[in-house]
Design a protein around this nucleic acid. Structure first.
Lengths: 193, 193
DNA sequence: TCGACATGTCAACAGGCGTTGGCCTACAGT
DNA sequence: ACTGTAGGCCAACGCCTGTTGACATGTCGA
């Protein structure tokens, strides 16, 4: 370290670190964990592969840094009860479309244990509490959150990864109109309709 | 070829071919396309890696052979209209639990283009017609089939691949009770509930 | 009995991977 | 102006991969 307590000062290497992280997210998102190579990431960031190692230690740690993610879920407790399904759906779609990170996480989680664990933590730590705040019976919260994950991730999988044509063709409004009620039921409805 | 028109005669190597295919399915299902190595598959089948090449040409063709899959969807046109959601859900869950092939296809499709294309064809060729037979407006069939895929694959992803604890914990009846109505709405319901 | 062909083993190849250590360069503190 | 150090490049390592070709064995028809 240069200073004693100065952790805020920008170092010259910060730009490189950021470039690596951006490139890493793109590659992990596009190729998955094993096919995204350190060499390719370094090339995208216009630096040497050894720099990646210097700044992030190894590939696993690089992924951990690149997969840091905040769903930024809104507080839904004040929203009219019948709207929370569509509101949550719309938010998730937006979040998915404008950030590579979730894609990287999803693609990697399918073949990488650490990434899968990260995904579990993400839903437990971020979606879980939001759902718990909406649900009457607290014991039901994890199941309901899990069901929401089921539909949300399934949509992302079929639209962005598998690219099933009819799912890709849906516009934002149609997505919310179709998926919103499903999410709504998982949050506030009952089994067997 | 040994005979001229004799394609039914069992060759000595058929057992080996089958062993390779079984091992390949298990490895692809457990590890995904790139992490499932020819060497590991050959070891599981108790043969030399070069045999895999001789019988299946290359890894890509081996996967194509291993990922041959029939959803065996039942004819739902005779089923009471309000039951088709749960019937289809139950069938899909059963199919998923008792055959590695779908798992191999899913895990591989996330990082492998050819596998993704196979998955698209599977849904277009097998789920598509079944949905088309149930739907009133034929033009809506692809979208509805896509939505079903969304929920079906999302469930498989979260339960078998990501292993989200609350989703793993659901028993068969709970799965059908929760997902059945969703599938039902995608098949026969309307947008926005 | 003999030879052709199917079945299977072994060793090696070329290339890509994550990762390492040494070397050069340029800037900051004194 | 000098020097320590951070930032960056290069070459190489050991390993694993898909794939290949030469060689051994066994089986069956002529």
């Amino acid at each position: 370290m240069t200073g004693s307590t100065d952790t805020t000062k920008a170092r010259r290497s910060d730009a490189t670190r950021a470039a690596i992280l951006t490139a890493a997210r793109e590659r992990f998102a596009a190729d998955g964990y094993e096919r995204a190579t350190i060499r390719a990431i370094a090339a995208d960031a216009h630096i040497d592969p050894s720099m990646v190692m210097r700044y992030y230690g190894n590939k696993e740690k690089l992924f951990a840094a690149a997969a840091e993610f905040d769903l930024r879920l809104p507080d839904l407790t004040g929203v009219p009860r019948e709207e929370i399904g569509s509101r949550l759906t719309a938010h998730l779609v937006d979040r998915w479309e404008h950030d590579d990170t979730l894609m990287a996480l999803l693609r990697a989680a399918v073949t990488n244990q650490a990434a899968a664990e990260r995904m579990r933590q993400l839903f437990a730590a971020q979606l879980g509490p939001v759902v718990a705040a909406l649900v009457e019976d607290r014991a039901e919260a994890p199941v309901r959150a899990g069901l929401v994950a089921t539909q949300a991730l399934g949509f992302a999988l079929t639209r962005y990864v598998l690219c099933l044509p009819p799912v890709v063709a849906l516009d934002r409004a149609a997505v919310v109109a179709w998926l919103g009620p499903t999410i709504q039921r998982y949050l506030t409805g009952e089994q067997g309709e």
